[in-house]
Design a binder for these strands. Structure first.
Lengths: 189, 189
DNA sequence: CTGATTTCTTAAGATACCTTAATTATTGGG
DNA sequence: CCCAATAATTAAGGTATCTTAAGAAATCAG
């Protein structure tokens, strides 16, 4: 798993073996069975959470009691609740494993210590955050302009095996359409 | 204007007078008349752009020749084309002043030099980017779930004077509804 | 101040997507 | 392997939002 982190980091900033070792030694690894919760409403999301393996969904329950899926999280993606993490306020969302999932996490406190100890880490996370921002912004800018069908196709293109890994009604929730309508869309290719 | 930057920076990270001076001396200020373009498709967005005063829109032209507004930019907001900036690829969008607008900008090259000279700056931009990510993500997550009317109300809440500053058809484009329908929505309060 | 241009409104018919409810298909635990 | 629970489909009728087209209102340049 250290190798995975090393590889991921080096996509953004070249790191020496030693630096990765140092950082990695402060990461906490945790495994969750399918359906287990990584975060529940009311908890403060105190750590950055990196998915090493598996699949998660982030969702909340709306006024009418419906689950609203905000994001799927896959390998090599950060899935913390950004708002809860930054503002140190209780989260409103669930993060749930949809497959057996292994994460690597680091608390905010520890990370801030490490930013001082390994200044390059500050750079790394600036760059990672910039890239995440770019990806999220791009995704939503286009999602907003797309029809349901186009959003579905776009999701499949981004995560081709998502239909094998996630029940269809969750994909519908994520795309903000009803399961019935998604079913109808799929019927006419 | 230096005072404005100082104030903005200190919202995120405490800076000494001297450090702000140093950074500020590398910023380039530019003014644009209403309707002038800050960026056009084909150009690479080589600078981070901060709006000191005024109002801009970012938009692109879709397949059918329609303008699609992605963002409005107001005072104390960064409005660069993130993807073009990060990947150093030609932008697909226009950024246009909707009022007489003054920006402060800094090239990527200069900024990277300054990250080394003033390490605290790296931290500042990590934090700014984190906050921007949080804001953008939150905005879109909710926009996706909202009706047209709710999106309109949400925009007004965020930028109360937007209706005075921007023609209604641009607001409609931003909210991804037709001007006709926005007009109808406004009619029934 | 005035005509030209831009912006906003109105209304009728069309379409994308939703709601409800019932039926069928699939999956997982014992 | 089977039953219970979960997930997916179908269809009918409804609503939000779009399209088109025309006219009214506001703004801008000279």
């Amino acid at each position: 798993m250290k190798e995975q982190i090393r590889h991921y980091f080096n996509r953004y900033v070249p790191f020496e073996e030693k630096e990765v070792d140092h950082f990695y030694s402060h990461l906490v690894s945790k495994s969750f069975k399918k359906h287990a919760y990584l975060l529940r409403p009311g908890q403060v999301c105190t750590s950055k959470i990196f998915i090493a393996k598996g699949l998660t969904r982030s969702f909340y329950i709306d006024d009418k009691g419906n689950e609203k899926i905000l994001q799927f999280g896959i390998e090599n993606w950060w899935i913390s609740d950004t708002e809860s993490f930054i503002k140190r306020i209780p989260s409103k969302q669930f993060i749930q494993a949809l497959e057996d999932t292994t994460i690597l996490m680091i608390t905010r406190e520890k990370l801030e210590e490490l930013y001082v100890a390994i200044p390059k880490l500050e750079r790394l996370f600036r760059i990672i955050t910039e890239h995440t921002l770019m990806a999220i912004q791009r995704k939503y800018e286009f999602y907003m302009k797309m029809s349901s069908k186009e959003r579905y196709e776009s999701l499949i293109k981004g995560i081709p095996d998502i239909t094998q890994r996630v029940p269809q009604y969750m994909i519908a929730s994520y795309l903000e359409i009803t399961p019935e309508y998604l079913s109808a869309l799929r019927k006419n290719d």
